[in-house]
């Protein structure tokens, strides 16, 4: 079991390592302009420098800001999205009214809302978090209502024959039964809010955040810092998905055999 896990991590890391090696070779041999391309060794060096920075915000502080914003956005989106999703899944007439609106708004990229929100509520956290929330909201509401609608009719029957009332059925059967879909929505929401928060940080952040840091570095043609930020964005997301989310899944829907 343990050996398999290590194997899995290795087979994930190997191609990445290859990618970094090729990048390094291209940089060392000067095959392309290094001011534009930088080099992995330089980038990792920069990450260490940025962790230890004393004269400005450290990369950890920037990351913490992005993570905090994403967490708040995701929390709001999950609260609102799940509640509305449950309502849509249970009440057909409400769903028929709201579904066209949701379907229309869903494909709009989160970042496209940023100019509007900047106009309405200005730069800073309120805009970043609102737009992050909005982008995570759609996949969450959509998947939650889908999960509720796709509950097997027979499992509801088998509970109603035991004398359960509607409330009990919703709480103890419909909600746990939709958990696989709700989890999917949550994961999509996490991915979307993380991307959107970082993107909006480039436009609307005034103090920090990974998006802010990267966009700021661009002004000084500091490509290495841009790469450092980009690599951290990927790394942090993968870390959260493969520890927190995986762990959560392993303890619930995976353990119950509701996903493979």
């Amino acid at each position: 079991m343990k050996a398999r896990k290590i194997n899995k991590i290795l087979s994930f890391m190997a191609p990445l390592l290859l990618f970094f090696i090729i990048w390094q070779i291209v940089g060392v041999l000067d095959l392309m302009d290094t001011t534009l391309l930088s080099k992995p060794t330089k980038v990792f060096e920069r990450i260490i420098q940025l962790i230890q920075a004393t004269n400005k915000k450290t990369i950890i502080e920037h990351s913490a800001e992005s993570i905090t914003r994403t967490t708040i956005a995701l929390f709001l989106a999950t609260t609102i999205g799940c509640s509305l999703g449950i309502l849509l899944g249970l009440k057909k007439n409400i769903e028929e009214t709201l579904n066209p609106i949701i379907t229309f708004l869903m494909p709009i990229p989160g970042i496209a809302w940023a100019p509007l929100f900047i106009t309405w509520i200005g730069f800073g956290n309120p805009t970043i978090i609102s737009v992050g929330t909005l982008s995570a909201f759609f996949p969450i509401v959509y998947n939650t209502s889908l999960g509720i609608k796709s509950i097997n009719k027979q499992i509801i029957w088998s509970t109603s024959i035991m004398g359960a009332n509607r409330r009990k059925i919703i709480k103890d059967v419909i909600l746990p039964g939709s958990l696989p879909h709700i989890t999917t929505g949550f994961k999509l929401g996490l991915a979307r809010s993380w991307r959107t928060v970082i993107a909006v940080e480039m436009l609307a952040a005034t103090t920090g955040g990974l998006g802010y840091m990267v966009f700021d570095a661009r002004e000084y043609l500091d490509v290495t810092t841009v790469y450092a930020g980009i690599i951290l964005m990927a790394f942090l997301y993968l870390l959260v998905e493969n520890t927190l989310i995986k762990e959560l899944e392993n303890k619930t829907i995976k353990r119950w055999g509701m996903i493979t």
């Binding site: 027979q154 088998s158 024959i161 829907i253 119950w256 509701m258």
Partner: peptide
Amino acid sequence: PGPDRGFVFQDFVLYPW
């Protein structure tokens, strides 16, 4: 439906969780 009856389905329909 009511608890004076019990029902057994072909596909079991147990609560996976």
